[in-house]
Structures are given as structure tokens and as C-alpha cells.
Amino acid sequence: MTQVVTVRRRALEASEERAQALRRSFADTGTLVVNIISSPGSGKTTLLEATLRRLTAGHHCAVIEGDVATERDADRIRALGVPAHQILTGGACHLDARQIEAALGAARLLPADILFIENVGNLICPTTYDLGEDFKVALLSVTEGDDKPFKYPAIFARAEVTVISKIDLLPHLPFDLAAVEEQLRSLNPGAAILRTSATTGEGIEGWCELLVKRLAAKRRATGQE
């Protein structure tokens, strides 16, 4: 006979519980965790390289890289002397908490002041998965077009910081920066909007200051100042 069972459980409950466990362990170690999300080619790794060059003098940083294939991104980070672990998803378009757990078990990334997680290049699926991070950062490069926030609202509504990257290319592109910033504000009025260029260095200092301030705030909040 057919049994009908009323379930009413979150589809992602196991993943969400793992993420909460990670969040507790990151609070214990006072590690700021940043989940970086964008479409492929927005400059996530390049922004990280510029960030690490500036931050590693005073802070222990570590990086988890998520890609479908190749160790390329982790190699770029290791070339800067920063510990990095590459997660190869073998086709999956996002990282999940289980993979972060496994990465932390496989590589000596902690203790670190700041752990950067570079998600798989994708504006949709990574939005749904909590990795135990303190906040999500969305990258939007000016070459992607100025209609993207409203086309992919979930990520821009959930990211506490949106970085508009490759800002040095602005003179060559029909990209309405004011319109983009207005879209971002309507999706997420409290989010920080930064403009950066890893090529010219514009905005990198402000981005690094934001990270250091967030780290200090987390240390205060967890009593590890």
C-alpha cells in the first residue's frame, strides 16, 4: 500500500547544519571568512592576488579555490606564498559546506586571520549554499553589462559587499555605473558598493580596509581582540 508521509523539512537542512558548525568553528578561531561569488572571468582571482599582496604583511590569509577543473587558481595564490587549497567540483557549479569541511581537513589553512573562499564562477547556484562565511561578496565586472543586478537579483540581494571590478575599462564601454549602483541599492540598501581595478590599483586599499575592519569587529564580537 502506498504510504503518504508529511515531511516538511528544508531540502538543504544537512548542508545548512554543516555550515553552522563551520561558522561556530570560525568564530572560535576568530577567522573572518569571505565567500566570493561572480560569473566566470569577473576577476575574482585577480582581485584576490591584489588583496593578498597588500594584506599578507600584517595578516595570515588562506584561500580555498573552487573550480570545475584545474589547479590554476590555487597555483596563482601559492605563488604569492599564501596557503591555498583547490577544490575540483568535477562539473558541479558551486561549493557546499561539506567540501569546505573536507578542504580544511585536507590542507593546513587554519589558523588564519582571513579565509577567502573563491566560489565556482556562477551567479546563480552558489547563492543558495551557505559555507559558514561571515559575508558574501559579489563581483561584477564592467565588461559584463549594466543590466546584471536585476537579471540575477538573488546574489546581489544577499551579498553584503558588491565589488564593481575592472573599473579602468569604463571609458571604453557603454556601462552606466550610476544605473548599476541604483539597481544594487534597490536590491540591497545596506550593502557596500566598491569600485576597483586590480590593474591600476584603484579601490583596492578601500576593499582591504573593509576586510580589516570586519576582522576587527568579529574579534571584538567573539571576545578575541
Partner: peptide
Amino acid sequence: LDVLELRFTPDDDAGGASAVDTQAHDR
């Protein structure tokens, strides 16, 4: 993004229908 309801046939069973509510066991 929730699993609401599951219909399944127990391996050692035939005929009829019953309803089970697991909400009491929910976390």
C-alpha cells in the same frame, strides 16, 4: 526550498493506503 510530502510503497506491502505524519519528529 522544502520537502513537503513523500509517497512510497513499503517493500513488504500490497493494497490500501495510509497516512503518516512525521511533523512531531521534526527538528
